[in-house]
Simulated scan of single mutants.
Amino acid sequence: MSLLIVEPLEAEVMQWLAERHPVHYAPDLATEPHQLREALHQVQAVVLPPSVAVDAPLLRAAPRLRVVGRMSGGAENIDAEACRAARVEVVRSLTATASAEAEFVVGALLALLRRVPVLSSDGMLVGRELGCATIGLIGMTPAARMLAQLLPVFGTRVVGYDPSLHQSDPIWTQWGIEPLPLRELMELSDGTALLLGYFQRYRGLLGERVLGFAKHGQVLVCTAHSALVDDTALARVLQEGRILAAWFDTMEPGLLDADRPLHGIAGLQVTPRLAGTTKESRTRAAWGVARRIDELLGATPEPQAEFRSTFPAELPDPSDEPRWR
């Protein structure tokens, strides 16, 4: 077996791959880890959903594996060091979901600003307009580039922060985003969009020292990994009203349990990974991943060893043109 597909793909993409390689489609393996590892023993390439961790134990069960395909662009659940050691390339979409994510963020900001009222000078509780707001983008992802094009159409001021980019980097000018330190961004923004790719060093980036400086009445939209936000600090600012509402498109299991700070907090909304999941984005992602897998399976493999080196690099260079990896 050359290719095992666990993540459902578009029918025409599946057919295209089946015409070129031996393909086995087994979506049930996503919830059967033991059977999945048995199936991987003779596999050269696999397409896995985000729920399946690509880690050292999985790679040890797949001695012939050369490629792991991911339909989502996030790096969560991927052990880059283990892939590098095993010389397994991770193929994932960095741009296919960008426009879908940007549209989702715009819609979420519009909904929160209008739905969560503030007190006006005449004493009435009223909504706000996106066109009169300053929106802070945290993380210069492909979706941020799309937002930098969409938001000014409303008249919105767009500011941004990325821990991997200096404020003098030309990417800010190229994308039309005003760079600010994170504290200043939080102090000025009526709404923030957290888009940053997750790495362990960024865990809890938005903690007490950051959220405590948020502009009163701010709304937060997060399409990134929820671990970037400290849940205790978020619960506190939501209770105080410093942040009026927060919308997370994904959240770590257990964060809303009865013994956790966010349990029962008003103003918190969670959706199940809707931002990048559209018919159009999945089609783009499926074709991009499929073509790259086909290219790699057609290439002559290097001499095999028990562990082999890998991709991806730890962070994509935001100044690069959109690409597949």
Rank of each mutant, 00 (worst) to 15 (best):
E38I: 04
P22R: 01
G298W: 00
E314K: 03
A214P: 08
L110Y: 02
K215E: 08
A56S: 13
P272L: 12
L180M: 15
G241L: 01
I5N: 03
A100G: 03
G74R: 07
V67I: 12
A299H: 00
F213N: 13
K279P: 04
Q35N: 13
T283G: 05
L220H: 12
M14S: 03
G212I: 10
T192A: 14
K279H: 14
V289Y: 11
D249C: 09
G191Y: 05
P316Y: 01
S121V: 13
R203V: 11
P318V: 01
D162T: 11
V116P: 00
L151M: 04
Q239E: 14
G204W: 10
Q269G: 04
D28A: 15
T250C: 12
P170A: 11
H216V: 14
I135K: 00
D231S: 01
P27K: 05
V90W: 00
S319M: 01
Q42N: 14
V88N: 04
G155M: 12
G276L: 12
I177A: 03
L228V: 03
W172T: 10
S281P: 06
V47G: 10
L194Y: 05
E89L: 01
P181T: 10
P253L: 11
F104Q: 02
T192Y: 04
L196K: 08
L315I: 06
H41R: 15
G241E: 06
M140Q: 13
A275Y: 08
V221R: 01
T310P: 09
Q35H: 08
Q42E: 15
R284G: 02
S72V: 09
E187W: 08
G288Y: 05
L196S: 12
A227R: 12
R236N: 09
S2P: 05
L315C: 07
L36W: 01
S164Y: 15
E32T: 12
Q218V: 07
L268N: 11
V106E: 06
V229W: 07
S319V: 07
P170C: 12
F199M: 11
P33N: 14
R66A: 02
P142E: 11
G288V: 07
L119F: 03
S120I: 00
G139S: 08
H41A: 15
D257M: 13
V23D: 09
Q200R: 12
F199T: 14
P253A: 14
E81Y: 00
S120H: 06
L268D: 10
W287T: 07
A85V: 11
